[in-house]
Design a protein around this nucleic acid. Sequence first.
DNA 1: TCAAAAGTGTTATCCTTACACCCATGT
DNA 2: ACATGGGTGTAAGGATAACACTTTTGA
Lengths: 332, 332
Amino acid sequence: MTRSDPPRSRASAAKDSMTVELGAVIVAVGPDGPRVLVRQPDTSRPAALPSGPLEPHHRTLEAGLRTWVEEQTGYDLGYVEQLYSFGDANRHASARAQPGRILSIGYLALVHEDKPRRMEASEWRSWYEFFPWEDWREGEPAILSAVRDGIAGWIAEAPRDERKSREERARVTFGLPGGHWNEELVLERYELLYEIGLVPEAHRDGAACWAPREAALMDADSLQADHRRILATAISRLRGKIKYRPVVFELMPPRFTFLDLQRAVEALAGVELHKANFRRLVEHQGLVEDTGAKTSKTGGRPASLFRFRREVLLERPASGVGLPPVRRSAKT
Amino acid sequence: MTRSDPPRSRASAAKDSMTVELGAVIVAVGPDGPRVLVRQPDTSRPAALPSGPLEPHHRTLEAGLRTWVEEQTGYDLGYVEQLYSFGDANRHASARAQPGRILSIGYLALVHEDKPRRMEASEWRSWYEFFPWEDWREGEPAILSAVRDGIAGWIAEAPRDERKSREERARVTFGLPGGHWNEELVLERYELLYEIGLVPEAHRDGAACWAPREAALMDADSLQADHRRILATAISRLRGKIKYRPVVFELMPPRFTFLDLQRAVEALAGVELHKANFRRLVEHQGLVEDTGAKTSKTGGRPASLFRFRREVLLERPASGVGLPPVRRSAKT
DNA sequence: TCAAAAGTGTTATCCTTACACCCATGT
DNA sequence: ACATGGGTGTAAGGATAACACTTTTGA
């Protein structure tokens, strides 16, 4: 973007050094659930997402990201999508420590866990290690009672005029008390916990928190800088997107059973789904086709193996729900 | 984002100067349709979106954007949302001309057209001036036949093996020939026209185009740099979002009739809607409440004036469609 | 034979779409 | 009277959610 004004305060901006950091949330789904790739080359420091600075020779932002990921993890990424750009001057401790300004651009990448790779210092971790309250596949997660208590305290100590809005926010994000759990609100939940101070990095960053450091859930500073926030953004985006775009298939092997597919969606969404209806939903949308082959590794009756119909990526770029159209013939 | 690796090629990145440009697509809806605010302080150059560089004293990216917009247009923005970060090294002519690298971050802002403002060098323009093929409110837009011809030529001259995929792409984006018009694909359509060379800025940027410069639709280089692409991104996002979040109301006056609301949605989506069903859809979702007042300025029977129920912003942060859940009681 | 998973049928309910119609006002 | 827009009724068709049931394998 180029301004057309006479330059005014541009000089000060140019002098200030600026680094753009490209970071990737690389997601795969294994038999045990959703996994993210994190790096910890130096065990004295918390783990981090694969990332590196944008350099002059990178033709595009995405190309720069792919280069860093290739170098650090050996992955040649397939599906990649930009998530968000974060640039608050004081958003976390390590950003403040650096001279100049750091802008970070987060990306979401979907891969098959089993592709060839070079993984020095990298490992797959369940994303629910970082967000244990997000996994409702086996009912309400255990940690939620602690979360609930923390939030209840925050509400109880609210000044009179803020009480209602705090209650409302808790009800919407965490479905408390009479609300419904909305699995897409991962980021909103994280941000609430951060603000209250129930998450250790809020204290590390020196944010003004209601809760004391000791009240924070989970022991360690699990991810560097604002990487947990970026991960939350990625999960929110992915949970939203699986509902209207066939992105799950980027995470599936070439052939899979219906239950494999269902388990993958459940892993991402963090909720259990109704088997028969899930099957019909997918069938009905024409997303898969039968390969004819069967597998009997499932423990019960052998299951048909399906493959993704790549054509639908062209057929239905967005299913589009919502507005009642008035169909009119073209005016010619 | 901070890398935990030993610094390797970081030095080269730090030395290179980097500018972050913040740009805003400011949208309003007037009686005649959707409008964007553009600036043209220097009439010898094409118009541009309000924008300016990120400066050290800007605490957050959004704060920087608000400051620039306030200064350039007098608007104190309400609803603001980050769209996308663009950083291709060679994406447009003016970026290549500058020393160092320019990264631009686009934002979408929704305002009421009638708010107090200071508009030197700024003016409201219908966004369909920049995308005339996107307005289907009165049936198929006239310019589409020219677009169709251009695309047909591009398909006809395709090498054998690329023919099918070009046809498919035209069918999906422009609904040709047996396809359906999907109003959300504004960006995809713009990118196709850019690649083919049917849009003048493709030639200005020196992109490798199929079509000769003379074949480009629309005479002028209507917006600076990649601002037309950013505008396309904004329209796509907004057209998608009105379907699942109550964002239209950011564009409405405090009180409005149902037809006002319908006209606003139609203006954004670029299609006509079914009156009775639109009404019931909105009513049923509890988005509005009757103020009791009526207006007889409508030409026919007086219409009730409604107001947006601000509460729903809390009640339904996302309506959530798609996955068949299995409802289970908490395991306690 | 039984557990485990695959896969089908059926129904009540709700939402979407389309069409038809009446109502209240200004000219 | 009639044009213009406001507003309601209703019925067909489709999608959703819930429940029950049959089928096919391995142990």
